[in-house]
Amino acid sequence: MGRIIYATLVGLVGAALVHLAVILMLPQLSENDVWRQVETRVALNDPVRLDRYGVELAAARTLDPMFAVIACRYDLSAGIFSITAPATGDFWSVAVFDDLGRIRFSANDRIVATENLDLVVAQPLQMRILRQSPRPELADAVMAETNRSSGFVVLRIFRPDETYEPVVREFIDRINCNTTPI
C-alpha cells in the first residue's frame, strides 16, 4: 500500500513539474508572441505607431484607447540605442523590452529630471564604457541596461480624446530613435 501511495505522489509531483516547465517555456517557443510581431513589422530605429492609427498588431488590440503607443526596435550589437522626444505637457511613459518580451526598464515623465524623453539602452559592457568615459550629449539621459542585444522600446502618450490627435502626430514626428557606435 505504501508503494502505491509513494508512486502516486512521485507521479503527481513529476506531472506538476512538467506542466510548470511547459508553461514557463511557452513565451520562448511561441511563434506569434509580441517580439515576433514587432520584429516582422517594425524596422530598426524606426518609430512606429502600434495603436489603431498605425501598424496593426494582434498584441496591440487590447491597448488603452486613451494612449497613443509608439515602438522603436533596437539592436545593440552595433552600439548603444537612444530614443529622444520633446515634452508633451501631458503624461508619457516608456518601457524597454528585450527580445523575449520581458520588461527591462520603465519610466515616466514624473520621475525623470527633464520633461523631455532622453533614454539610452545599453548592454552591461557598453554601460561600463559609458560610465568610464561619459559623453556630454548623454549627461541628462536616463540609462537603461539590458543583457540581451535585441529588443524594443514602447512609448505611450496620453491622448484624452480624438481632438488631441494632431498634437500626438506632431509629437511622433519629433521622436528620434538611433543607434550610436561606442
Rank of each mutant, 00 (worst) to 15 (best):
L29Y: 08
M66S: 14
G151V: 05
D46K: 12
D75Q: 05
A21H: 09
P27E: 09
L20F: 11
Y53F: 14
L26F: 13
A95Q: 11
R73A: 05
R128M: 10
D118K: 10
I80H: 02
E39R: 12
S82K: 09
E39D: 13
L44H: 07
T146V: 13
R36G: 01
P47Q: 05
C72F: 03
V168A: 05
E137H: 10
L17I: 15
R148I: 08
G14M: 11
E39C: 00
R73K: 15
A144Q: 05
L125S: 10
I172E: 15
R104V: 02
Y6C: 11
L138G: 02
A60I: 04
N45C: 03
N116L: 07
I182N: 10
L20A: 10
V48F: 00
R174V: 01
V168Q: 02
E39P: 00
T40N: 13
R49N: 04
I5A: 15
A141T: 08
V142H: 06
I80P: 00
T163K: 15
L17G: 08
A144R: 02
I175W: 04
R102G: 07
E165Q: 15
T114S: 14
L76G: 07
A139K: 14
I175A: 05
D118C: 05
R102S: 12
N32H: 14
G79D: 09
P65T: 10
G79C: 09
F158N: 07
R174W: 00
R102K: 13
A85V: 08
D75V: 05
E115L: 04
Q37R: 04
P181Q: 13
I175M: 06
P47R: 02
M66F: 13
S30H: 08
Q126T: 07
Y53C: 02
R36T: 12
G89Q: 11
C177N: 06
I103G: 06
P27V: 07
N32V: 07
N176L: 11
Y74C: 04
A113C: 00
T179S: 15
V10R: 10
R174D: 11
V69Y: 08
D109I: 04
P166W: 11
M1I: 11
P160R: 14
I157Q: 09
M25I: 06
L76S: 08
W35A: 01
I70Q: 01
V10D: 04
R52Q: 10
H19V: 11
D51T: 02
R110N: 10
G151E: 04
L100G: 12
E162H: 12
N178L: 14
I175G: 03
D75W: 02
P86K: 06
P47A: 04
M143N: 04
S149G: 06
R102P: 00
E165N: 09
S149P: 09
V69A: 13
I175P: 01
T40G: 05
E39L: 07
L125K: 09
N32R: 10
T88A: 15
W35G: 01
I80N: 00
A139W: 03
V142P: 00
I23W: 12
R128E: 15
G89Y: 10
D33Y: 03
G2W: 11
V69G: 01
I23H: 10
A122H: 04
E56D: 14
F171E: 00
P65A: 09
V153F: 03
N178V: 13
Q132I: 01
S106K: 09
L155M: 15
I182Q: 14
Y74M: 06
V154T: 15
D75I: 04
F97D: 01
T179R: 06
M127L: 14
F91N: 06
